[in-house]
Design a protein around this nucleic acid. Structure first.
Lengths: 239, 239
DNA sequence: TGATAAAATATGTATAGTTGTATAGAAAAG
DNA sequence: CTTTTCTATACAACTATACATATTTTATCA
């Protein structure tokens, strides 16, 4: 490979070799690639040359690496429709992914001025704060923070302890349906905490959504913020 | 590479995530933290990485671990009430901590324009500048800078040389009572100097308080700035 | 009921494997 | 001569696994 008169660098050759392996379905999303040492041995080159090749695929978003664990085939971005009714579990099932929610915190506290304004309650009124992680096929795709006004939804904290589903919890406290009233999107850089939870690098771009859900009566029942890992989710907006 | 190589090590991020949980009062002294396995699952990392993070908190004295039992909260951030009367020693005693003040500088000089305005004196008028460190149970929690108008409080410099207590020193010069007229709070990043004094990392978040205390007569007797270590103190505001 | 043993939990320790980073140097190309 | 490519080495950070040891819970039996 080296002695012949090809002028393409070895690391590029390795990159395209691996890329065609992926294209052929030799490895499927979530699979672990051989270790760098194994690849170096297979190609008869130094580990750093292999690393250079892999880094190309990482740049392209085809592969994700985890220190100490290995290199894994990246899953294609999940389509996440933002419409009148935004339901995590339904969205992911529709996208053919296995939805999972991981609770990070759940407590009751007083609302700040800004939060109160959004929920149309008084500052200091009690709210339920639900903080967690959204996963698709076991891979973290977003961090969320939901606020529920306790004045209108007494008992929702207890309900959320039983089920991770917001829809179900709201149903328990008498809200059978709720619709998205507003969604605001901005791009931000990942903080250390978000980076840790989402398994991205600090400073990586995130898609932040600030949303408000209303009950059928037109009153706010949930105010949420969600940070999506930019390269794992594609938000789709319906008319 | 994009993924997994944060600028801040994972174990540090975990340590600060847990630390802020403590600061927010999510766990109170005696409470059991989630198991290492649960935390590893929550953060999506290996148990050893979590252990590394926890060991930081153990070093800091915030957490105590018992083999076979779990990790327990040893101490939580000191509650520091900001009300009409703000007294360091009383505040810490009420919080069950041992208060201590360490003097860093004490001198007399001319007031700058801004300082004079706050103290309602003329620019250039002499003031006493008192600079020091506040500690709780021997751990530094804040850096303060107090200014006293010498025109109204002659002899306070000498008094402050005898006692570290502002309340006592003011009493010596005839001020038996004083009340908080205003408090302004902002979040800032720790400078190298503050970081050194407070035993935090440069750039860590500090809570800066700019305050003004009046005598019973309604005249300013002290203008102060205090930098609290964000994760060691919780300022509580009374009505 | 109460004591005891077994099982399940949870932290502590040890070892090896994998990726990330830093440094230095040789070889080839421009 | 300088830059790029590749090699070589060493170490840091994180993962994976296994097992030891202490604690708590559960089951069992007198």
């Amino acid at each position: 490979m080296r002695d012949s008169s090809d002028k393409t660098p070895i690391w590029k050759a390795i990159a395209s070799a691996l890329r065609s392996d992926l294209a052929e379905g030799r490895y499927t999303p979530g699979d672990k690639l051989p270790t760098e040492a194994a690849l170096a041995n297979r190609f008869g080159v130094n580990r750093h040359t292999v690393r250079h090749g892999i880094s190309v695929l990482v740049e392209e978003g085809l592969v994700r690496t985890r220190r100490g664990a290995g290199a894994f085939v990246a899953a294609t971005p999940t389509d996440y429709p933002i419409g009148q009714r935004v339901r995590f579990h339904e969205n992911l099932n529709a996208a053919g992914r296995r939805p999972e929610k991981r609770r990070l915190a759940l407590d009751e506290r007083a609302a700040t001025i800004g939060e109160a304004q959004a929920l149309q309650i008084e500052a200091g009124d009690p709210v339920c704060a639900y903080h967690g992680l959204l996963l698709a096929d076991g891979q973290p795709i977003a961090v969320f923070e939901s606020l529920f006004p306790l004045a209108r939804l007494g008992g929702i904290t207890a309900a959320l302890k039983e089920t991770s589903s917001v829809t179900e919890a709201l149903s328990v406290v008498g809200i059978d349906d709720y619709t998205r009233a507003s969604t605001r999107l901005t791009a931000v850089r990942a903080t250390a905490t978000h980076a840790l939870l989402l398994h991205v690098a600090e400073g990586d771009p995130l898609l932040r959504s600030s949303s408000l859900n209303h009950s059928q009566g037109g009153l706010p029942v949930e105010s949420g913020r969600t940070w999506f890992a930019g390269d794992r989710v594609t938000l789709t907006l319906e008319a």
